[in-house]
Design a binder for these strands. Structure first.
Lengths: 211, 211
DNA sequence: AAAAAGTCGTGATGTTTTTCACAAATTAAT
DNA sequence: ATTAATTTGTGAAAAACATCACGACTTTTT
């Protein structure tokens, strides 16, 4: 579609840069160097310059980057001019955390509908997001193409299949189940237990320098 | 300390393998091939074989891997014989999700204490984990070395510093703040907003094959 | 006006990770 | 017994990613 030349590793960092540039801009900062950015987002400054360079020469030698210009550039690169609607499936603790998570208000992604299997939650809303019953997915999902999946692991596979049939092509999967989907659907897994266990493993087996 | 030869990418996948082997074992399965594993955890089978090979020849040609043997091997590699105590700082929605997250019961990591700034929560417990006030960190944290940080972003930096002073050397940071810590402290960032935004970006710019 | 300091963009290099592809070994089928 | 089908473990190649280091240009200081 676009420039498929941008490395995936770079693409993953773009939202991070974008958020930090927003912060800088709100603080009234006019310019920023790759070194400052590096300290803030904890990414090597050469990596940052390289990342930016995939989009052309965005900076000025001896000066750095103009915050407003860079912000505008990333805003359009990240399609922040249009709203992306997202649905949340599973309004348990984790799901609720997402619905109340104010950092999503920094950008143009909106969770507009939530679904749950618990009838007692249906009809209510959390932070303004209405909750529907999962059996109403077909009628209510409409043209939403991205969902956050925070259901119990045992439900994941079945619900994922239903979602795909309804046209979803992006799933942010927080369940430990590695769901199987057709090749045109993208799934990003965030596996909380794995993250924690892996941190513990690194601590024991990859000791860091004591300063 | 150990074999620092194991690539980090491999180390990150170990807990995933471990969990899946546990499932297989509970299902009574005796043998498994890298191909089956691959389909289940969505990692290329050659990568799995390579990963395993760092630990020696664990399988048998023409046969595959013995589930019980492999499980036992990973159990000790991942130090599952001893319990790792973890504290949770910030018992909001996200923190509560962790406390109730049963998948941590599959392994030997235990969240034993939670802390929050909200006095009305202090003294209660969530799923058996007692909640203390953050001002009592010094007395209560004791010899816990790993924490899950689910506080508001504005508090992150200050609390992280306090934690480090109390001897913490591993932080699983769910706040959008990129905290600054001494070099002997390991921080893994999980940035929910970035993950969601990055998924949306990939969907728009890296279209997948239609089958 | 000149010198010093700062900073980008990028060629080149180094590192890490993934993947291919196949000999060797084992199991299963005939 | 023989043949066919599996499957590992790994050398080698490829791909992806990060970092170094420096010329070129800009800003700041003297």
């Amino acid at each position: 579609m676009d420039q498929n030349k941008i490395p995936q590793a770079t693409a993953k960092r773009l939202p991070l840069y974008y958020r930090f540039l927003n912060n800088l801009n709100q603080q009234g900062k006019r310019r920023v160097s790759s070194k400052e950015l590096s300290e803030a987002v904890k990414v090597d400054s050469a990596t940052i310059r390289r990342d930016f360079s995939y989009f052309g020469a965005l900076g000025k030698k001896g000066y750095g980057y103009n915050v407003e210009y860079l912000l505008g550039f990333f805003r359009s690169t990240l399609d922040q001019h249009e709203v992306t609607e997202v649905a949340l499936i599973g309004a348990g603790n984790l799901g609720t955390a997402f619905l109340k998570y104010s950092f999503l208000k920094n950008n143009n992604i909106r969770i507009t509908k939530a679904f749950d299997a618990d009838s007692s939650k249906v009809g209510k809303d959390i932070d303004g997001v209405p909750i529907f019953h999962v059996s109403d997915l077909e009628e209510e999902l409409e043209n939403i193409r991205v969902v956050i999946l925070t259901v119990p692991a045992s439900e994941a596979e079945e619900i994922a299949e239903k979602l795909v049939n309804l046209g979803v092509n992006g799933i942010l999967n927080f369940t430990p189940a590695r769901i199987t989907v057709p090749s045109h659907v993208r799934v990003h897994h965030i596996d909380l237990a794995v993250e924690l266990q892996s941190l513990v493993y690194f601590l024991k087996h990859y000791p860091l320098e004591k300063e």
